[in-house]
Design a protein around this nucleic acid. Sequence first.
DNA 1: CAGAAACGGGG
DNA 2: GTGTACGTTTCTG
Length: 611
Amino acid sequence: MVLLDIDYVTDNDKPVIRLFGKEMKDDGDNHIIALDRTFKPYMYVIPHDMDAALKQLEEMGLKNLEKLRKKDLGIDLELIKITLKHPQEVPKLRENILALTMVKDIREHDIPFYRRYLIDNGLFPMSEIQMTGKTVNFSKCVYSGAENINIIDLEESPLPLESDFPELKILSFDIEVRNPDGMPNPDKDEIIMIGLAGNFGVEKVISTKGDHLEYVEKVSNEKEIIQKFVDMVKKYHPDLIVGYNSDNFDFTYIKQRAKLLGVKLDLGIDGSELKFIRRGFTNSATMKGLIHVDLYLVMRRYMNLDRYTLERVYLELFGEEKFDLPGDRLWEYWDQDGDALDELFRYSLDDVVATYKIAEKILPLNMELTRIVGQPLFDLARMATGQQVEWFLMRKAYEYGEVAPNKPSNNQYSERRGKKAVGGYVKEPETGLHENIVQFDFRSLYPSIIISKNVSPDTLIAESVQGVIECIGENNDENPWKNSECHSAPEYGYKFVKEPKGFIPSVIGQVLTERSRLKKKMNETVDPMEKKILNVQQEALKRLANTMYGVYAYSRFRWYSIECAESITSWGRDYIKKTMKKAEKFGFHSIYADTDGFYATYKPDEIKDNK
DNA sequence: CAGAAACGGGG
DNA sequence: GTGTACGTTTCTG
């Protein structure tokens, strides 16, 4: 089946991973919930002294202790893996464990259980997985409410399979409210319309008016609008539901009105209700087995605009204006009936169709990122790009046998926030009209620097941060690096060993190699659909590689290193300036430069060697 | 002037 | 829930 989403529930005090997926059949989709009871939560302990630490942990009553070898930023390390019975024991016990005198540090104690499961089993959402297990009798199952769902009790964890991009059923929705007094107030302002649009032939507006329009589904009151919405979502059974600012507005509003009117929002595949989970200071709307993507959050990351209204984003993506009405006067259109009401219906349909079109355009990239990063689409669509890179690296760390660094403490975080790495070299443009212009730029300058200079926290020579040290050359016995070859960053003098290859340079290397392979394949492919998919895949890898340099200076990054960030930009400035100097020697005159490229003019008869 | 609070999107 | 945005602008004391 295609793995769409994942969570865990507790059954008899034991965690049960639930994998939500579907199998595509000719006569429709076959929905599946697979239960895995075999996976257990764990965390690592770095001991001061192995045997003494084991003794202290045993005295705490901990039983499943295991000695383990891992690497910590490239250095061999012996640590203790503590396996627990329930994920919630980890936050409960970790403070006490850290307080033990023989415990130096704790690691990987803050990884959500389902994410750990995906990483450890090598599973990727939006990809095929192979399962062995038996379908259990529904009546015996503790998860009530679901119908037409196959529940499989797994005998062992599933295996990942190579697979193509899955075809998903996508439904977009949008609500309209009658708000005569400023912003909508869910205590008094009723929902008057809910628009729906999808890739399975649906374009509808549910309302209490407008049955002369063919796309309107008329019901008799607001309660029935919401009930109809719930019924339709269940009937269509989309894999994905998308909205615009739907975390904050549409779902929040529907939830409050539904509560007031007594409608059950049991949109979960297992019969559970729409629920809001806290993410920082804001909430996200979530349903079991139905992936909700709020496109507003996605678009804010994807494009750089002054505003991110639906109208603005739509114009930017499609180059055409969306039919728009003034938000504070929608209630007048509703009350007036006649032509004005028809305009409001048109506006409602236009909004939901625009939302759908944005989804169609932008989801393929996010689906690819989901398949690369390996975390659920719901999470990925709400992650900062730095977080996406981090979870990608968490998986790579597991594969490489590296134990992940901890997240920064509050103190470390505020300390990091005060620091800012100097950026790329910028030469302000010379004003005027120029002719005979040549342009030069480096292809993926920063990723190339990371790889060629081996810039990584695990290759950085700590002594070079404190002061000047020599690698090969200064042969006094005190110098531990006297036999090492290293790269030395301009301006700062931070040094990076040439061997072995650092963790992050290796990963970026892999990403770029994979991207080249896909690009080559794309250019050889004739089939336009295949070409398009390969293009999205290589685009996703490019985005990932390009974000990787920036994350060294991202304050919440586990592999944060201001020294790495500064070294990368200093090499970048060095390269661009040297290249410009060289060009000037040949008679070019540079007129503008920014970070990884520059523009120059030339007088055709003065160029010394124009080969 | 520094630190707190508000803001974004939505109707 | 192995959890707790975010960066920027505006207000307030």
